[in-house]
Design a protein around this nucleic acid. Structure first.
Lengths: 124, 124
DNA sequence: AGCTTATATAAACTGATACTTATTAAGACT
DNA sequence: AGTCTTAATAAGTATCAGTTTATATAAGCT
């Protein structure tokens, strides 16, 4: 079982998202990844550690360098979890559609079971 | 521009993910959402506030109750960002495939430019 | 061997986060 | 009006996360 906590908290940081965006363009060393930031190298190394533990990046060894690249494990488990949310969202909208359709049909009539104002919020 | 920080950190908490999973089954009030947890109601209210600010849930008003349901805004912006990662991942694997294909072709031959062991990590 | 480059690790500081308890507000029920 | 229910807010606390400086390790260079 993949660690969703690790994966989502890894993505919650803008520096780490920027690192991933950089890696989406291809492999890069720690120094290359650190360059665009005002942070020190140790800070970047820690971010990379978290990203790796979250299964979002992999590390290679090439001499004294440790180039990172994107990994698919982390992203896959995230996608899997989000899929659940998406289907929930769709089902709920379907339900809402049925409710709205029912209201159309009995338009003008008084709803029987209501004891108080069931006001529906402005949004959607 | 949607707040990815808010969205991803909202998802980084297991309590909040459980709340979303519950809402994927349909609308629920604060008390209903709080019930499975050992936490107090104010704690849940705070979580709901974060989820709402992240655009992941909506609130309705029904008497003294405030039923929550899933919202699509937050999920959409997350999906959009992750799409970037996915394409990056695919492109990188394509590149790797080309490299491996090239190595196949010159199999047995010595690689010219190598000065040191370019050992490739065990994973993938 | 000694110097440099590339990266990791440790300790300390600081600010944010997840809770708690206490309190408040507003609708519903009698 | 008075009370119960549902929920939000405030203030306090304790733990965690992001950073820095300082130091360590290991490969490459001269």
């Amino acid at each position: 079982m993949p660690d969703l906590n690790a994966a989502f908290s890894a993505l919650a940081d803008p520096t780490r998202r920027a690192i991933l965006a950089r890696l989406a363009r291809g492999e890069a060393t720690v120094m290359e990844l650190a360059e665009p930031f005002k942070m020190t190298q140790p800070a970047i190394s820690q971010h990379l550690k978290l990203l790796e533990m979250a299964g979002l990046i992999d590390r290679r060894v090439e001499g004294t360098k440790r180039p990172r690249r994107l990994a698919k494990d982390g992203l896959e488990s995230i996608d899997q979890w989000l899929a659940m949310l998406r289907t929930g969202l769709e089902k709920n909208y379907d339900r809402l559609d049925r409710v709205l359709a029912a209201m159309e049909r009995k338009q003008g009539k008084q709803c029987k079971g209501k004891k108080h104002n069931e006001q529906v919020d402005a949004k959607d």
